[in-house]
Amino acid sequence: MGTTEVIFWFLTAVAVFSALMMVFSKNPVHSVLWLILVFFTISGHYLLMNAQFLFIVNLIVYAGAIMVLFLFVIMLMNMEGDSEPRKNQWMTLAGIISGGTLMLVLVAALKDTGTQRQLVQMKEGQIGLIHHLGMVLFKDYVVPFEISSVLFLSAMVGAVIIGKK
């Protein structure tokens, strides 16, 4: 077991633990903080695969920007135990069923893909470096990339319009 594997298993353990803590902690702010830790560990995994750009972008965008906005909203809301509406039992059941279905689909999808046999390139993969990523994004996938930017633009315009109302 080399250094990389040790770090990998450590990060994995922390990621799973903090993901569970995120689900089970009562305080929503704590949940968000655990989620941030999850993002950190996943970024660590990116780094192990030598995907430095993905590592840092995951940190900047998810842990740095989106989770801050989450925290904003949660901190400003009054999260008292009493104010939470009582849930219908049918709702709980529906939640369990839909969640279970989703998990089933995910497991099935993972089972069918060839990931089990194909090992992840550790340490020396080049695809995650910014140079290669740029080449791929702007040469092979220019059209989808630009279309997704239009999607973002339309989302922003929509937000502005809703905000103006």
Binding site: Q52, I56, I60, V68
Partner: peptide, 25 residues
């Protein structure tokens, strides 16, 4: 000397928000 040096600084700076937010909350 990582090849994303500037982005690293941005990433860490964006983490700096949490010090303020967590402390304040």
């Amino acid at each position: 000397d990582i090849n994303i040096g500037i982005l690293f600084i941005f990433g860490v700076v964006s983490m700096g928000v949490y010090g303020i937010m967590i402390g304040g909350w």
